[in-house]
Design a protein around this nucleic acid. Structure first.
Lengths: 190, 190
DNA sequence: CGAACAATACACCGATCTGTGTAATCGTAG
DNA sequence: CTACGATTACACAGATCGGTGTATTGTTCG
């Protein structure tokens, strides 16, 4: 039976690729740098991943986190997204959305990265949509798209502005949209 | 007096750089490809631009279009942004926001591209803000940021989804935000 | 014509890129 | 101990990168 002597060589390579790809850009990072960061020879890297493109795809696939279901109220779950975003924005090394960045810098829509990016964004939109349905809003499809736009817009804006407080603006906008859809109590005066 | 025999060699180089940088990504395009596209020798290219970095900066600076003032009603001007966005999204070769893309793929915040990108986004936000002030909304600063988020969010979403109709969702969200701020008449029933 | 200047072709530099070939080494299972 | 599979170091291929040096070809003005 094949064994694994180390706590996963494949994972170390993937972790190194994630760190370098995300912080410096995919095209800016060579496989040599990834192998060095992972503490692995270049030959070993190519024994685990057949090509840099495959490693890129693995990087994005690993970034594809599935959203854990929650028992919290739907509106709270939705607004919680923006609160979590603010923390991510404020963390050192935030560099935008890895999926959007990959699509932007790879260019080729036939690259595996594009399909992965579409799936990720679509997953989050569907998550929004099902929550909105449970809230009984009038147009869950359209509103889920609007929330999605707010999320990606906040990410892009922070990428160039570097101001994590943008997340609060996005949250406020989401509140207004939810309120207009009847999914939130009427506004309290200040 | 120095003369110009052709309709501007510098401009042809810039136009070639714009086309290639935007459609394929900055790092993906070599100076040789730009010179070829411009119908110019590489030496001439370097006689007009001292380095690729300078050409990148020129590319972004040229993309920096100043917004022409208009006499149309303020709310109409704001919503018109999203209508124009939809046309841009539907045009062939749309590849997202050149400023955001440049920041994303260059990584280095000290690169001239970052400063240009910040200026561009800030200009548009100020444009929103002054229109909102003329509308007498309660929080022009915050609302201008929210509109900015909608614009960049729509751009990022279309980049991965490829669906120009996203612009209409963004416009609808902008209408809701303006209405909640009292800058638009109360909603008509469908 | 002839001086002045822009643009050309083209070779070239050193660095870096993705990817491979190979022989030596190491750790573990039988 | 031995055999085997994973990993290593390292050289190398072939391409491309940004950038330069140079000698030659135009083109325009005086």
């Amino acid at each position: 039976m094949p064994f694994h002597k180390t706590p996963n060589a494949t994972e170390r390579i993937l972790a190194a690729a994630d760190k370098l790809f995300y912080t410096q850009g995919i095209r800016a990072v060579g496989v040599d740098a990834i192998a060095l960061e992972a503490g692995v020879s270049k030959r070993t890297l190519y024994n685990h991943y057949p090509s840099k493109d495959a490693l890129i795809a693995a990087y994005l696939t690993a970034r594809f986190r599935h959203i854990a279901p929650s028992d919290a109220p739907a509106a709270e779950q939705i607004l919680g997204v923006f609160d979590r975003l603010e923390k991510v924005f404020a963390s050192t090394g935030f560099r935008g959305c890895p999926f959007v960045n990959a699509v932007a810098e790879l260019g080729d829509p036939k690259h595996a990265a594009s399909a992965i990016a579409v799936q990720f964004k679509e997953q989050r939109r569907q998550w929004f949509r099902s929550l909105l349905e449970s809230l009984g809003v009038r147009d869950p499809e359209g509103l889920s798209m609007q929330l999605q736009i707010l999320v990606d817009g906040a990410i892009a804006t922070v990428l160039v502005r570097g101001d994590a407080a943008v997340a609060r603006s996005a949250r406020a906008a989401a509140e207004t949209l939810l309120r207009a859809a009847g999914a939130l109590p009427k506004q309290r005066a200040a």
